[in-house]
């Protein structure tokens, strides 16, 4: 066997070994690889931003062509929706007014207000194995791990890694996504699980909970990570012990998202905690 072939075979085995080692490290010690990912995405963020602009152009062109063919039906649909929404607006105004008065009477502690940081989606994981996106806002803009990410439709996901000028969002449909939710009408609690598809699943529902198709699912705010009441989606199918949720967010058109900076009073962010923070569980 010539030396060159031998060297190549050795390199092959060595590199395959390296990939397996990398995966084990990534699984056992994700903190170690997170640093590497953050550095890589921070370095490439300007390049990705450059590439994502023409891509967004093509996407909006395709969308325009699509809209051109459906403009009449859409117009009709919007007119009906507008009529319905005007009625709802009257109801909402009245309810809001009543709500303020009742809160005043009861001295309710108001929920902390969340501030927003908005960013553009500059990269997408491709979707078959993981469902994450990169945005062009990072720790320099106030983005930190765990924050909720929303767009005009509703909840999109949460921040998992924050570099100085880019951050990774774990979409709520990712296999690793777990979000405490509540069914809006029945106030039943559940956990929303992703499975890498376009939809998400409800789990840990109470045995006696009654679930119906079309029920709205919103964040519950349990755990103090997300503000309560962010719309997520509607139940599209009821299964044994759970249901399938069709998210409001349109995964094909995720262009700009907002990161919610929400701090529950009494739960200080870790750098401001007194004492030996590292020793805390």
């Amino acid at each position: 066997m010539p030396l060159k072939v031998l060297v190549q075979r050795f390199a092959f085995i060595l590199l395959v070994g390296a990939t397996v080692t990398m995966m084990i490290v990534d699984r056992v010690e994700p903190k170690a690889t997170e640093r590497l990912r953050v550095v890589a995405t921070d370095i490439t963020a300007p390049v990705l931003e450059f590439f994502s602009k023409p891509a967004a152009g093509i996407a909006s062109l395709a969308e325009r062509v699509e809209i051109f063919f459906s403009v009449y039906e859409e117009n009709e649909q919007l007119r009906l929706e507008n009529e319905r929404l005007l009625k709802w607006q009257a109801v909402a105004r009245q309810a809001e007014h009543e709500n303020v008065e009742l809160r005043d009477m009861l001295n309710v502690v108001s929920d902390p207000r969340a501030s927003f940081i908005s960013g553009r989606v500059i990269a997408d994981s491709g979707g078959a194995f993981v469902r994450t996106v990169l945005i062009n806002a990072g720790a320099g803009d106030g983005v930190a791990g765990g924050q909720a990410v929303v767009n005009g439709d509703g909840l999109v996901g949460r921040i998992v890694e924050a570099g100085s000028r880019s951050a990774r969002v774990l979409l709520l449909t990712d296999l690793n996504s777990r979000i405490p939710v509540v069914i809006e009408s029945s106030r039943e609690r559940a956990i929303l699980l992703g499975d890498n598809s376009q939809r998400a699943h409800l789990a840990f529902l109470d045995d006696k909970a009654v679930l119906a198709e079309g029920d709205r699912v919103v964040t519950s705010g349990h755990g103090g990570m997300f503000p309560p009441g962010i719309p997520i989606g509607t139940v599209s199918r009821v299964t044994v012990g759970g249901g399938v949720v069709e998210p409001f967010a349109d995964w094909d058109r995720l262009e700009f998202v907002s990161v919610m900076n929400y701090v529950v009073p009494g739960v200080l962010p870790s750098p401001r905690r007194a004492g030996r923070v590292e020793k805390l569980p």
């Binding site: 996407a59 969308e63 989606v121 990269a123 997408d124 994981s125 979707g127 094909d252």
Partner: peptide, 11 residues
């Protein structure tokens, strides 16, 4: 990795 967002592409 660029987000193409083509309709129906499903990301």
């Amino acid at each position: 990795v660029v987000p193409w967002r083509l309709p129906g592409f499903g990301a």
